[in-house]
Amino acid sequence: MTPPIKPLPPELNNFLFELGPRKLVLVEGADDAEVFEELYLDRLSKIAFFPTGGDERLEALLQELLTQRPDVESFGIRDRDFQSDTDVEASLTASGSRLFVLRRYCIENYLLEPLVVWYVLRVYLSKAFPWSSVKQAEEHLLKLCADMRTMMAANFVLRLQDALLFSKGHELLSREVLVEAVAHRLSKDAALVEAEIVEREAHIDERLHSLGTAYTCISGKHLLFHLFDFARACDKKRRGLSEDYLFRQLLAQIKQQNLIHEDLREIVEQKILAGS
């Protein structure tokens, strides 16, 4: 006799009600779900992406699904955040793995391909477009990454203590202010905090030679914010570009130019859709 069917916890019921015979993929936020749904629009009869509201909730719900409904093929895709290369690769290569970690910091990093950024801003800025080649777009993105290294290092230190991270815009703060703020949030000595930040900066610096590696440790959400800021500064006519609009234009171009990154293909197409 199988266990009686009773109502499941509301969140699980909400996912499963819409799921049908598809594979279920939990992602962190609504933006993640939007990206995957857009990129895999032609596969939505086989796969469904549901936002959960964050990495901890995602992992808890995935565990609950795997326990309560083993018949449902459930997976999770979470941001890399500050995880090491070893942990990321383990999630992607372990046999029977259901929780995959993105190789890049977060989903937005996969939208910020130089060719796509170059194309979207050229169309939007028209005569105000400042770059003469895709290479210049790439150099600009790398420079943004370098500008953010201290803030990302500071967030790494904060994350180690489960403290509140700096949100978008804090990159503009000076190094001294950031160090003070971290020391204040952690109630630690500023000199000690600075040493920890310097250590992490060294780790980040090793990755700033190319976008592929820089994107593993610099947040795409923050980068997108600064790219938006840059575009607004170039757009002297102030034609009302919004960050959401930029996000959607980048996403649309990734789709249109078939530039879905190999990392995403590996997880969605090879690990989830092609897997049993």
Binding site: T2, I5, L16, R69
Partner: peptide, 13 residues
């Protein structure tokens, strides 16, 4: 959700 019962696919059994 508290009043919803989801029938599993036959594989569930």
């Amino acid at each position: 959700s508290e009043n919803t019962l989801l029938l599993p696919n036959p594989q569930y059994y």
